[in-house]
Amino acid sequence: MEVRDLVRGTVDWAATEAVARELADRTGRDEVRVEFLDADNWLSTPCVVDEEWFVKIVSRQNAFVHAVFTTGRNLGAVTSGREGFFDHVGSPLEMAERELAATVRMREIGVNAPEPVEAFEVDGHGVLVLEYLDDFRTFDDVAADEARRLTPELFEHLWRMHDDGLAHGDLRGENVLVKGGEVYFIDATSVREDGIANARAYDLASALATLEPMLGTRTVVELALDAYSPGDLLDAREFLDFVNVRPDHDFDAERLKGEIEKVADASG
């Protein structure tokens, strides 16, 4: 077994069968078909059930890894001169319930997200059930011209979340889906209410870091300014070094910081 598989925590077949039986009982079906997804997800085992639902199975090991990641991210926030703002989640069920609640709130304020179905517990595993969006692509997989067209919508949805007191907490290309020419947000994580301002700045920094390699430094900053102020970008600038050390982001942090400074200077 690879180290990452050990750390991630796989869900054994007996647990998967128990989840499948519970889903069948809850939907009045004799049985359901489970198809695992080939996704590099450290915090759950994702699968598709009957090509109708997207299901995440969260183990105790996933909850432990989430706690470790939360501690590391909060330490990273401190190195950026801010207080930590990521919220620890205690159990697999709570992880599933938190993401379900975040998905409900996103849809309530008009942010595209899969339809939430339910969250429940089976044999110590948390289970999250959402609508399955078939024929989707992640933002990482779209061409540059399509990314340029969709980016204003991405920033608009992100601003709408922030304006309503929400934050995503883990914004990256694979957590933004594209279907039918629209963007959908998934995998929102938990942030503390008293740290929402810092979480918003971190979200914006993560969005800039995700989009900069596809669109170029100047273009991504110009598009961000359609939704955010130069002051917002300066706040995000403080988190760019922190975002840059994450293995799931690869961007030119110094050029991005320099472009933000130019915009701020020009605005007075």
Rank of each mutant, 00 (worst) to 15 (best):
M1H: 11
V3E: 03
R4A: 13
L6V: 15
V7R: 13
R8S: 04
A15V: 04
T16M: 14
T16K: 14
E17V: 14
A18C: 08
A18V: 06
A18S: 05
V19T: 10
L23M: 12
T27P: 08
T27V: 09
D30L: 13
V34K: 01
V34W: 14
L37Q: 11
L37I: 02
D38L: 07
D38P: 07
A39M: 09
N41C: 09
N41M: 12
W42H: 14
V48M: 00
D50F: 03
E52M: 15
W53M: 05
F54L: 08
K56D: 01
I57H: 08
V58T: 14
V58W: 12
V58R: 07
R60M: 08
Q61H: 14
A63N: 08
V65I: 08
V68L: 14
T71D: 13
G72M: 14
G72V: 11
N74I: 09
A77D: 02
V78C: 03
V78L: 15
S80E: 10
G81E: 05
R82K: 13
F86Y: 15
F86S: 04
D87G: 12
V89M: 02
L93K: 01
L93C: 00
E97W: 08
E97I: 00
R98W: 05
E99G: 04
T103C: 10
T103Q: 10
M106D: 02
R107Y: 03
V111C: 04
N112L: 00
E115M: 13
E115R: 15
V117R: 13
E121R: 10
E121C: 08
V122K: 07
V122G: 03
G124V: 10
G126M: 03
V127Q: 08
L128R: 06
L130I: 05
E131W: 01
Y132T: 01
L133N: 08
L133K: 10
R137W: 12
F139V: 06
D140Y: 04
A143V: 07
A143W: 05
A144M: 02
E146Y: 03
E146S: 07
R149I: 07
F155P: 04
E156H: 09
H157E: 05
H157K: 12
R160K: 06
R160G: 07
M161A: 04
H162L: 08
H162P: 00
A167F: 01
H168V: 02
G169F: 06
E174C: 13
N175D: 15
L177T: 01
K179V: 15
I186P: 06
I186A: 05
T189F: 06
T189H: 07
S190Y: 09
V191I: 09
E193H: 11
E193A: 15
D194A: 13
G195M: 11
A197T: 15
N198M: 09
A199N: 00
A201P: 06
D203T: 00
A205E: 11
S206T: 04
A207T: 10
T210I: 10
P213I: 04
L215M: 05
G216P: 05
R218T: 13
T219N: 08
V220C: 05
V220Q: 12
V221Q: 00
G231E: 15
L234A: 10
D235V: 10
E238V: 01
N244S: 12
V245A: 00
R246M: 13
P247M: 12
D248Y: 14
D248T: 12
F251D: 01
A253Y: 05
R255C: 03
G258C: 04
I260L: 02
K262F: 01
A264K: 03
S267R: 07
S267V: 09
